[in-house]
Simulated scan of single mutants.
Amino acid sequence: MSDFKGRHFEGEIVLWAVRWYCRYGVSYRDLEQMMGERGVSVDHSTIYRWVQSYAPEMEKRLRWQWPTPRSTSWRVDEPYVKVRGQWAYLYRAVDKHGNTIDFYLSPTPNTAAVKRFLGKAMNGLKDWERPTVINTDKAPTYAIALAALKKEGKCPDATLHRQVKYLNNVIDADHGKLKQLIRPVRGFKTRKTAYATIKDFEVMRALRKGQASAFNITRDIRGEARIVERAFGLGASALAEVFQLVREQLDLTAA
């Protein structure tokens, strides 16, 4: 059954709107006008509902394309996100190259939240994929949570916990780019809507950083869009696209 059954617009248009909103940091009203310029008349409230419906599913379907960290040296931090007038804490982990590992939105910055996040980030990793180094700020919650995870066998005993400020420059820079996407929202209404939207912000950031480059057949922005479309069964399969690209290259060579 189609993921877009009952929608008044084709799936390509729905994904187009969701991807644009979560990739370029525009408001819903601005996106309504941008789509109007392309001949698509859709209300900003409809785009909002599309994002809430498809953003979490997009994250779920695309995460397998970068299932493991590219480095065992992690950087962990928690920027603030405003939800219903209150600050929430977006725990994030990237590797030393800036590649996204995982994220978790919590209403409180306590040891339980840190433990839940790090346990989630390490869940399913092979022994050689688990972190050898985790760099954080000097919040005591990290040390307590890591000690508990080691005791439970969820984190290697040999994992080094470092608290060196300059080493988190990589994740601080990544926070800045994510905040550019969050800024037009001007505060989320609920934690549920915040997390749903942030999931796709993170997916678009990961695609932009090339974390699914093996699946980007044309190695460009259109290739990124096709990764998303294929995840929802739209258009040709990846194999068909490869054959088409090869044919085009052979035609150019023959000419």
Rank of each mutant, 00 (worst) to 15 (best):
S2A: 10
S2C: 06
F4W: 09
F4L: 08
F4E: 08
K5T: 13
H8R: 15
G11M: 08
V14K: 07
L15I: 08
A17T: 11
R19L: 06
Y21P: 02
Y21V: 02
Y24M: 02
R29N: 03
D30I: 00
D30L: 09
D30V: 03
L31D: 05
E32I: 03
E32H: 07
Q33D: 14
Q33K: 13
M35L: 15
M35K: 05
G36F: 09
G36T: 06
E37D: 14
S41M: 12
V42F: 10
D43Y: 11
S45I: 03
Y48L: 14
Y48D: 03
W50I: 06
V51W: 10
A55S: 15
K60Q: 14
R63G: 00
R63M: 11
P69T: 10
P69A: 08
P69I: 08
P69K: 10
P69E: 07
S71I: 07
T72M: 03
W74L: 10
V76I: 15
P79D: 07
V83T: 11
Q86S: 13
Y89K: 03
A93P: 09
A93Q: 09
V94N: 09
K96E: 15
G98K: 10
N99H: 15
F103S: 10
F103M: 09
S106T: 07
T108V: 13
A113Y: 02
A113K: 04
V114C: 15
K115P: 02
R116T: 15
F117S: 03
L118W: 02
A121M: 03
A121T: 04
M122S: 06
M122T: 15
M122G: 06
G124L: 05
G124D: 04
G124I: 04
L125T: 06
K126S: 12
K126C: 01
D127W: 12
P131L: 07
P131T: 05
P131M: 05
P131S: 05
I134L: 08
N135I: 03
K138I: 02
Y142H: 13
I144W: 03
A145W: 08
A145R: 09
A145P: 08
A145T: 09
L149F: 08
L149Y: 10
K151Y: 09
E152R: 13
G153Q: 08
P156G: 06
A158C: 02
H161V: 07
Q163L: 04
V164L: 14
V164D: 12
K165V: 09
K165D: 05
I171P: 06
D172L: 04
D174M: 13
L178V: 14
K179N: 12
L181M: 11
R183I: 02
V185Y: 01
R186P: 00
F188D: 08
Y195I: 00
T197I: 04
I198S: 01
I198A: 01
K199M: 11
E202S: 00
Q211A: 02
A212P: 01
S213L: 04
A214E: 14
A214N: 10
N216S: 09
I217L: 15
G223M: 06
E224F: 00
R226Q: 14
R226W: 02
I227M: 12
I227Q: 12
R230H: 05
R230K: 11
G235P: 08
A236I: 11
S237C: 12
S237L: 11
A238F: 05
A238G: 12
A240V: 11
V242S: 01
Q244R: 14
L250S: 05
A254T: 13
